[in-house]
Design a protein around this nucleic acid. Sequence first.
DNA 1: TTGTAAGCGTTATCAC
DNA 2: GTGATAACGCTTACAA
Lengths: 343, 343
Amino acid sequence: MRERAVTLNDIAKKLNLSTVTISKALRNHPDISPKTTKLIKSVADELGYTPNIMARNLSARKSNTIGLVVPKIAHFFFGAIIESVYDIAFQNNYEMILTVSQESAEREKKHLQTLLAMKVDGIIISITQETSDLSVFDMVERRGVPIVFIDRVPEPANNFTTVKVDDRGGAYKAIEHAINLGYRKIAHFGGYTNINIGKDRLSGFRDAMNDHNIEINPSWVLEGGFGDNYGYDSFMKLYNEKNLPDLIFAVTYPVALGIYQAVNEVGLRIPEDIDVICFGNAKVQNFLSPPLSCIDQSTDQLSKIAMDMIFENIEKKEEYSPRQVVIDTELVLRGTCRKFNKE
Amino acid sequence: MRERAVTLNDIAKKLNLSTVTISKALRNHPDISPKTTKLIKSVADELGYTPNIMARNLSARKSNTIGLVVPKIAHFFFGAIIESVYDIAFQNNYEMILTVSQESAEREKKHLQTLLAMKVDGIIISITQETSDLSVFDMVERRGVPIVFIDRVPEPANNFTTVKVDDRGGAYKAIEHAINLGYRKIAHFGGYTNINIGKDRLSGFRDAMNDHNIEINPSWVLEGGFGDNYGYDSFMKLYNEKNLPDLIFAVTYPVALGIYQAVNEVGLRIPEDIDVICFGNAKVQNFLSPPLSCIDQSTDQLSKIAMDMIFENIEKKEEYSPRQVVIDTELVLRGTCRKFNKE
DNA sequence: TTGTAAGCGTTATCAC
DNA sequence: GTGATAACGCTTACAA
């Protein structure tokens, strides 16, 4: 049943030509006459020839493959990133090796090594919550493999090429909007502050409050994660303490989901009893009731810029120097955080 | 800046040994004495050696890679499939090449060819809505590359290895449940019937209705897609015709989302005015209001079985014969489809 | 215990 | 226009 794959050599033998001729013909090399090229191609088709990409890559010392490292797959944000990175790769005739760190720095390191070993031409990565040892990344660069960080980036970032959203500015914009609406009792359910997205969103919150001379209630500034259970638990904690704010700024959309669920369970209503806004824009937010307002971070833009930099870097090689790009966010107002409801 | 990658040869020269010795030592081959092995490893570390996987694979004629072809990435179902396939691959020391057909049969074919060319050891695929030419799949099998279809499978399937959910049975279960509740005016917003999931869910609906002697209103049996806009449009169509049923069985969760949105927009309420149930269980369904009941299809089970079959097939090679496995669904009752609300 | 030779399938280089 | 040779980096079989 199993047929050995047909190789250049097989075709060469059949036609009494050399493998080189076949190889060239199949790649439309001008060396070979149109006539023989045509002949060769037809025989290749007939035999069902498929090039062995591993052999080709070995010879070319280039894989036409880009590696992607993300913390999670089944997640609206990373799902979108993966999809658009993939699209761009595909359009440029690159394959993509997908790799998931599951928020483990150790796995992340291992993946990076594997990607190097697979001789990917470039790497796009969103680091884990716990990544602190940056030497792995230096190592990648030393190998001459372009790497760009997307959304979650190492700090300090000056030696690396990064694209991210203006996390601080986005958070600031949202809080300022809320303040203008009349909100004063504002909480922040934040992620981990050892990673840029957690830290910057928190400081956007802080700065906006301070700039408007609103005192920050420390018991309303929580830290602890990016998932829905964290949102749920945090809300319940405040609820049980009878210490609810008027508005919660959730560090991510899943955290907001957890809040929705908790609010529902205790019989309160959004936005009348308590209001919510979050960082991150998932399509389903439109379908929640009320539809959830948020700070949108364009995954398409992020991916596009990241890939552009990778490609540019691949071409330039030596003379490419690290750069950090930050893109703007957009405040998307839906059903929540539209007006202040308390007296 | 760019350093040439260090090879076995480099280590060999440095130690005045042969590449073979190095190769063996690094793989802990018993041939080599513990002492030299240790020495070699330390030098390898020091030099920052990374094996060239392409070379290794070329030599081994095996890539330790599995290829995955899905119609979409940023989609709760495929996202979950990708994630669990990836996990299993990773646990077994396989890499994964991810490939997306975007519902285009042409792209699908191209991807399959690329995966063959990349010498993947196995392929897992969920076919597009429009796939009708099965010869590509035969070709893959002829090449001796194990391929298993997951969820969306070709028909007839008897020559292929497939895993899917009991689509017909799941739909039947849901409709029967609704009928027992007292529902009679039931609509089905169905997908395309040229693909098994669309066809089978529809026939589950039909069979349940027929078995319970409930007449099917043809204007309530729609066909047209798997996305939210289709759900939205279909609802609006019936609404404008003043031809609403009491319950809509949506072929997928996104279709149900579209219905939620439309219902909200026209000011009706779920489940009091109109009720909904759907095929497919996304985590967010818990966070909708009301939480959406559904027929759950276990992505973990699907992936696990698919991968088991791939691995088994990889080992057995010649003597492996196609099989079709169908796994059970589970009715998950949340806020919708729990009781009949009309008079 | 270590090394030699050959091969995996392709491509670049340089002759013919 | 076509082909021989060497090389890409690794592994297996077989000697030494």
